[in-house]
Design a protein around this nucleic acid. Structure first.
Lengths: 194, 194
DNA sequence: GGATAACCACGACGGCCGTCGTGGTTCGGC
DNA sequence: GCCGAACCACGACGGCCGTCGTGGTTATCC
């Protein structure tokens, strides 16, 4: 499919920048070529059709969106606790807002996947795997709460990111504080009714 | 601008259906004409440019997304309580998932607005007004919590809707139950630390 | 009842799109 | 040092896009 992985990634990264900056409407083979600074036709050679291009971007985005191994290793050395979990979520929010292009592109892909069955299958697998991993980590660490609480957190953090990266209600609260409160109330509240 | 409001709304509704079904990429004047069953060129006459078309859709979407007056009146007769507030949110989730096109179109518009300053200003105003109204209602009703708690709920419900309407993690929990838990923990938790 | 203006259907134009084909080029095996 | 295959740059084609112009039609007011 692709002989030169470097060039393929270069093109995919250019495509993600376009997806964030111009939306699905601006994502074309020629635009990717221009953004990547390669001759016209290159993107068409690496991603023969438009759906192949979208699939390529989906593949690439999860390589890049994975947490920084250094941060993960750092967190892994600490004793499991809600404070640790809070820092883990804060890292996600900080990283995604520091690279808004990636997250905006992911939102675009999620919307696009709602219409494109093959893309939905691929994206859904990755999202579900991430969710399952979070649940497994949480349970293994002996923290309060389980799958239900992780799902609630997932929704809330996604909504927060959507607000931060698109049209916002400008409530003006500090994201770190919001994350802290979400963990505190949603997870610790697992002990409470109902 | 528009002589015939009925026809304008007919076109705008067709545009919203397209936005949900085909995304921003499929939203064209000709596609709107075809979807609305009117002669080619009609959409171009009512919305002279593409940004005018987007602005028209944004205007229309908030007319249609407003809560059902009957439901609001019904809720207004009951004593203010967290149960009442939960029912209010459940109505929002039920209504938006019953008409997924509208909500998906709103997500598309929010992403589009992140790039288009004039659309962002218009959309932002409406979103902020809705948020302020929710806060005012909450405080006036004497319910626990304030602006902070409403913002948290707003994030969580938006994230829930995003999950329900686009690529989902398929956690499998009942949305009504999720809403109930969110209100319970996020709002009632306002009394707890931190 | 006619004039005036607004509205509307329709066509045309330049531009950009996805896709495919076609030679030029590079690289590894012998 | 040659040969074959894979890769790549580039052009061409049919199609759809946004926009603008142009007559035909309808409605309103004197």
């Amino acid at each position: 499919m692709a002989r030169n992985p470097e060039r393929r990634n270069l093109l995919a990264d250019a495509g993600l920048r376009i997806l964030a900056a111009a939306g699905a409407r601006g994502l074309t083979h020629r635009a990717v070529d221009a953004e990547a600074g390669v001759p016209t036709g290159t993107a068409s050679n690496y991603f023969p059709s438009r759906s192949a291009l979208l699939a390529g971007l989906a593949e690439r985005i999860f390589d890049r969106i994975a947490p920084d191994p250094a941060v993960v290793a750092d967190l892994g050395r600490r004793e499991p606790s809600l404070a640790l979990f809070t820092d883990y979520l804060r890292d996600i929010v900080a990283r995604t807002t520091r690279e808004p292009d990636l997250t905006r592109a992911l939102f675009e892909l999620r919307l696009e996947a709602a219409r494109h069955p093959e893309l939905r299958a691929a994206l859904g697998d990755v999202l579900r795997r991430g969710y399952a991993d979070d649940v497994a980590f949480h349970v293994a660490a002996g923290l309060p709460g389980g799958a239900y609480e992780i799902a609630l957190l997932h929704y809330a953090v996604d909504g927060l990111l959507l607000d931060l990266l698109t049209t916002s209600i400008d409530a003006g609260f500090d994201p770190d504080q919001v994350v802290s409160t979400l963990v505190s109330r949603l997870v610790r509240g697992a002990d409470l009714a109902p």
